[in-house]
């Protein structure tokens, strides 16, 4: 796993997070998850997934969408998809 590419992905993910959770002002780090962001409900989760798919030109599998525990998992999946 490449630290540099992960940082780049995190920067792009952060932009989407800021757009979708406009009321959240805390830090965006790999351990961020729905429990820490009040706006992050199940509806917003699907919306977040769709925005990320669009931004990175990838598709998450349904099983992935439901198993991500935090942003770190999401970033790993994006990195994986990009390497493939």
């Amino acid at each position: 796993m490449n630290e540099i590419s992960r940082d780049a992905i995190l920067a792009d993910v952060t932009e989407v997070i800021r757009d979708i959770f406009d009321e959240y002002e805390g830090p965006v780090t790999p351990d961020l998850n729905a429990a820490k962001v009040p706006q992050w409900d199940s509806l917003a989760h699907v919306q977040l997934m769709v925005l990320l798919e669009k931004k990175f030109g990838i598709r998450f599998k349904m099983s992935e969408i439901q198993s991500f525990k935090n942003l770190g998992d999401v970033i790993a999946s994006i990195e994986n998809a990009q390497e493939r």
């Binding site: 199940s42 699907v46 919306q47 769709v50 599998k61 349904m62 969408i65 439901q66």
Partner: peptide, 12 residues
Amino acid sequence: GQFFVAKTNFRI
């Protein structure tokens, strides 16, 4: 996929 996860019948 979205239909089964979010119960929408259009792509969001």
